[in-house]
Design a protein around this nucleic acid. Structure first.
Lengths: 222, 222
DNA sequence: TCCCGTTTTAAGCATATGATTGAATCGATG
DNA sequence: CATCGATTCAATCATATGCTTAAAACGGGA
């Protein structure tokens, strides 16, 4: 088990853990800023002061929640990319495989049962949509390493692209993921059944196909 | 001039107009929920009560701001799609042209000078990222018509796709736009110069290329 | 000039928020 | 059981929020 999983595996009945679980659910559902400490502690069945006792402040609680889920996902992303690089031993990794290495850890994290599928998708979406890329300090270096490694992998995979285009296309892909994870359910409701009810796996597969085409796209003659 | 432009063209020095201008800038920069009425009226140099006098409530002010910018953009989108449909007289419209019809009104609105380029991009991004698709009641039917017309156009453009896939790919494209518009500046900073400093036109061009490839993608043999 | 509807203003209301305090409670250790 | 650090608790603080009020200021028409 990865080191950072230790945090996830902590006792569930403690006050600290109850706060984390309630907080992340409310954050995912309604947003980080708008949820109050009293809502969180109310849902957790603990005293308001417990948040400041155990975490120091609301901001630090947010950081703890984000770190708790983002770190293992990013570690798993890096680990999957490592595997791919060994597997292809220097040769360019297919774009599809890179995208899978980036997205599937989200699925695995869902499967680990730490947060419900529905909630975790919204949570991951809000991470980007609401907090921009201003991540907790403790997660930044890991995130930077991860993003850099994936950017390099994408560049090797599509050598006809310059670095700038490769970076932007990677960011475009992140946009697809963030938006679809956060608003996927709303989109389905809006389309009134016409967009079906794809499983998370199917949806992620479609996202990967879409992004792969966008990234591999060779440019057109003018 | 389109009818809804009347609102945009109102006198700039009135209290009502000063509130709108200050509010939309703050909303774009920091989000709809977190900005307080006192920040808005402070920036506008008017009394706090003026918001409730002129708009009725903060929520109605948000609606007014959203409507004021979203309606002309959506009308222009429909108008451009109308032109395309006449031009192609029943034949499928190329995906690239549809995407342009959807995105370029954002550019035009920027060019109209109602809001600075930087702010308006963030504003459009937040519309989806922060408010989901819960638009002001007065804008919903126009939005629904617009979305339906574009979905139909996309379907005609990629007949090999079923309705469900076409809808999802359209939504994926919206995700690219929302994310890039809102976070584009942050992305540039994060990449430390490596993503260049593309003009808005160049960036939108890249977005269109990326989405076109993702939408037209034919599927792969299994 | 006076009038009267429109607009602006300062002050305040009720409520909510994040944070803090000091006392009470718990629980392991001696 | 007694002790003592860790934890929980009710109560409270200072501040911020959206909104309301009633009085004042404005401004065009009589």
């Amino acid at each position: 088990m990865i080191e950072s999983m230790r945090v996830l595996a902590e006792e569930k009945h403690t006050t600290r853990a109850r706060i984390l679980v309630s907080a992340e659910a409310l954050f995912a559902e309604r947003g980080f800023e708008v949820v109050s400490l009293r809502e969180i502690t109310g849902a957790a069945g603990v005293n308001v002061a417990a948040v400041n006792y155990h975490f120091g402040s609301k901001e630090k609680l947010i950081d703890a929640v984000v770190t708790r889920h983002l770190v293992p996902v990013n570690e798993e992303r890096l680990s999957q990319l490592d595997k791919l690089e060994k597997q292809f031993s220097g040769a360019p990794i297919p774009v599809e495989e890179i995208l899978k290495a980036f997205l599937s850890p989200v699925l695995q994290h869902i499967a680990s049962g730490e947060m419900s599928e529905d909630l975790f998708k919204k949570f991951m979406g809000r991470l980007i949509g609401e907090r921009g890329y201003s991540l907790p300090i403790g997660t930044r270096s890991l995130f930077a390493v991860m993003a850099g490694r994936f950017a390099a992998a994408f560049q090797r995979a599509v050598p006809q692209l310059d670095e700038e285009s490769a970076l932007w296309r990677m960011h475009f892909s992140f946009g697809v993921m963030a938006h679809t994870l956060t608003n996927g359910e709303t989109l389905r409701q809006l389309s009134d059944g016409r967009s079906g009810n794809p499983s998370t796996e199917t949806l992620l597969g479609n996202i990967i196909d879409f992004c792969r085409a966008g990234i591999e796209f060779e440019g057109r003659e003018l």
